[in-house]
């Protein structure tokens, strides 16, 4: 190989490597999370919910932001995980980590089975199918209220200590770190996935499906794998919420949940791995402050925000940061 070629290939490899190398700002969410623990000891319950919801939004980012699959039914997987963990805990199997793993498998199964159907279609039909899967599960949970407790919630969950050591305490210390640890692991896995050849091929499918078919990529299978992984992550998120609040009701499967998570992700920025870390806390903290005052106005402002963002700030907060950064760089 000539020297020039050597240099170009090395430079290309370097570009690839740069993508998955850790950068300083990737430590920020975790530092903030730990700092938040010390700064706001009275808000640990909200903190745990935020951490679990970030995971839920990450799961949406994988299918939507990377896979390009618009889903109105991600709550199906969240709810599947939540009910799995809840039912286990209500029937004497309260070991949380095992519950989490089983919930992940159960949600993944729902994802795999529904994915086989959903991912064969496109556009509105696909959107409808994701919605139908969720409303079907919602309806089933409602009607099976002898098992699920329906809208009033599952009774009698008893969640044991984490690893038999750390009891879930009244202040939410254990819950907070339990959620943080689960989020960290899932984030780490997802980060590897999106920077792997598999992740690149997902982006390829989103950008140009015809081209991916033409280079012999098994498009359906790739999407199915992503859909299943995403479902598992959503399931873990649901299980975290169920275990830390010791409560599951049918709203775990509701349309609002699927819709809200889309909004949170849009707010942070879709398809960039960190959108969830920004959009979810922003949304949930604002909701905690303002929604209590009047939930009706809350939805008005959220709706307005959505309309304005789609019209003017498509990339979310991270998109705005990018743009400001680009302007500053040009100035320099």
């Amino acid at each position: 190989m000539t020297a020039v070629a050597e240099r170009v290939v090395a430079s290309a490899a370097e570009t690839f490597a740069r993508r998955h190398r850790f950068r300083w700002y990737e430590a920020l969410p975790w530092l903030v999370a730990v700092a938040g623990y010390f700064a706001f000891p009275d808000y640990l319950a909200l903190g745990s919910q935020i951490l679990a919801t970030i995971l839920f939004a990450l799961s949406v980012d994988l299918v939507l932001g990377y896979g390009g699959i618009i889903t109105l039914g991600q709550a199906a997987f969240f709810g599947a995980g939540a009910y799995t963990a809840g039912l286990l805990a209500a029937h004497g199997m309260g070991a949380p980590v095992i519950g989490l793993l089983i919930a992940a498998v159960a949600a993944a199964l729902v994802g795999l089975i529904s994915g086989v159907v959903v991912l064969r279609t496109h556009g509105l039909t696909q959107l409808m199918m994701t919605l139908m899967v969720a409303v079907m599960l919602h309806e089933a949970a409602n009607k099976a209220n002898t098992v699920t407790g329906g809208a009033d919630g599952l009774q009698g969950m008893e969640v044991g200590p984490v690893f038999g050591l750390f009891h879930f305490d009244l202040y939410g210390n254990t819950a907070y770190f339990y959620c943080l640890a689960a989020l960290f692991i899932c984030w780490f896995v997802m980060r590897r996935i999106v920077h792997s050849p598999f992740g690149r091929s997902l982006t390829g499918i989103r950008e140009n499906e015809a081209r991916m078919h033409a280079i012999g990529s098994p498009v359906f299978r790739r999407r199915l794998v992503a859909y299943t992984i995403s479902a598992a992550m959503a399931g873990v998120s649901g299980a975290l919420v169920a275990q830390t609040t010791q409560f599951v009701a049918t709203d775990a499967l509701g349309f609002e949940r699927s819709g809200n998570v889309l909004i949170m992700l849009l707010l942070g920025g879709i398809g960039r791995l960190y959108g969830a870390f920004i959009g979810v806390p922003l949304y949930m903290i604002a909701q905690d402050r303002f929604a209590a005052i009047d939930p009706v106005y809350w939805y008005f402002w959220i709706g307005l925000l959505l309309v304005l963002m789609v019209t003017f700030a498509r990339g979310g907060v991270l998109g705005i940061v990018d743009r400001v950064g680009a302007v500053l760089r040009r100035r320099r």
Binding site: P197, F198, S217
Partner: peptide, 29 residues
């Protein structure tokens, strides 16, 4: 590179970073 990598059956690898197989880039170049 994407095409070569699909042909060699490593386009769906999930456990390694993209771009870590130098011979694929060499071939593409």
């Amino acid at each position: 590179t994407l095409a070569v990598s699909e042909r060699l059956g490593s386009g769906g690898d999930i456990h390694r970073p993209a771009g870590s197989r130098r011979h694929i880039i060499d071939e593409a170049y």
